[in-house]
């Protein structure tokens, strides 16, 4: 019985410790965001609903990019084509929506979601079938999606219907709850049911321990393809978010979001080894990464520092993470 008692922690103290261990990083990321917001308020005392709205608009596509990458990374893979997939969704939407009303635009949006989800699934299928490493395949398909995006639309073109833009740009409920914040609800709407389903658990399972997942009866290939497909779906959301927030279809918008998406998940506490992490951290990280350039502008510093700071931040974060591994080994 001694073993059993030790094995089943029941006291609230241990529970708290466990929660801190499990969610510590996420909590820290939110704390960091809160600190940054406080700093922002100190620097810019007249920070108001408008600035907050601007931030949510800037963070929306990145949050989706991070979500897309998170799911793939949870399954033990990586998708370097998230950005081009977003660009593809973005230009497909613009081409089809140009000069149409909201209802038509929404139908277009649904079709684009479907198309790009399939593109994501294709990424996964190629990886599983060819057994070529995910990095190589998604690097290669990132060319393909980017090329297709350029074929759809040769150069940045404005013309996303205003009603469609307003889905993200307004503040329907209250000035402090902009639509761009509400649109983030797409993430839990898809993610929570998926996470609770066996298919979603299987995604975690393949990323966590392939051998144990296999023994648990998980279809490894199918689960990986599903992860890439859901990744594609969120990349499509990101592309549509770009349409809404910028009003422009831009075939070259992608590159930034691949890199920043990876940055956001690293900062958001998703293990690149797969199987560990959730959605809350990366979304907060997307907000942090979007806030930094704004803060620099408020400080009167060249916003070009933003990219540098973002890079340095990631380097520090991953090195701290790596240091943990090194210390545990020693």
């Amino acid at each position: 019985m001694a073993t059993a008692a030790a094995a089943a922690p029941r006291t609230s103290g241990i529970r708290f410790g466990r929660a801190a261990r499990r969610y510590g990083w996420t909590i820290a990321v939110y704390a960091l965001f809160a600190v940054l917001m406080v700093v922002t308020l100190i620097i810019k005392p007249d920070y108001g609903a408008f600035e907050w709205n601007t931030l949510t608009l800037a963070a929306l596509p990145l949050a989706f990019a991070a979500t897309a990458q998170t799911i793939v990374v949870l399954s033990g893979g990586i998708d370097l084509s998230v950005g081009p997939l977003m660009a593809l969704a973005n230009v497909l939407a613009l081409r089809a929506m140009l000069g149409h009303d909201l209802g038509y635009s929404l139908i277009v949006a649904l079709i684009v979601l479907l198309e790009v989800t399939l593109a994501g699934a294709l990424n996964g299928a190629i990886i599983v079938l060819t057994r070529v490493p995910d990095i190589v395949i998604t690097l290669a398909t990132s060319f393909i999606w980017a090329g297709l995006a350029l074929l759809v639309l040769a150069k940045p073109t404005p013309g996303v219907p205003f009603d469609f833009q307003n889905l993200a740009q307004g503040s329907t409920l209250s000035a402090w709850i902009p639509n761009a914040l509400l649109l983030l609800l797409v993430i839990p709407l898809v993610w929570i049911p998926l996470r609770r389903s066996r298919a979603g658990l299987a995604i975690y399972a393949v990323g966590s321990d392939r051998n144990a997942a296999f023994r648990s009866g998980v279809n490894l290939g199918l689960s990986r393809v599903l992860a890439y497909a859901v990744g594609g779906f969120f990349a499509a959301c990101g592309g549509l978010a770009l349409s809404m927030t910028t009003g422009v279809g831009s075939p070259l918008a992608g590159t930034y979001y691949t890199l920043s998406g990876v940055s956001a998940i690293v900062l958001g506490g998703v293990s690149l080894a797969g199987g560990r992490g959730g959605m809350l951290g990366p979304v907060a990280a997307a907000y942090i990464l979007s806030l930094i350039p704004a803060v620099l502008i408020y400080l009167g510093i060249d916003p070009n520092y933003g990219q540098m700071i973002q890079g340095v931040l990631i380097v520090i974060v991953v090195m701290i993470g790596g240091l943990g591994v090194v210390l545990r080994r020693a």
Binding site: N304, G306, G311, I314, V315, V318, G322, V325
Partner: peptide, 26 residues
């Protein structure tokens, strides 16, 4: 980063790419 801190090469070099480009812009 890669050899001492055991950061994944992909991530380390991606982030350093950002740092380099950002620094160059500045």
């Amino acid at each position: 980063g890669v050899a001492v801190f055991r950061v994944q090469p992909l991530i380390m070099t991606l982030a350093m790419g950002l740092v380099v480009t950002g620094t160059l812009n500045v």
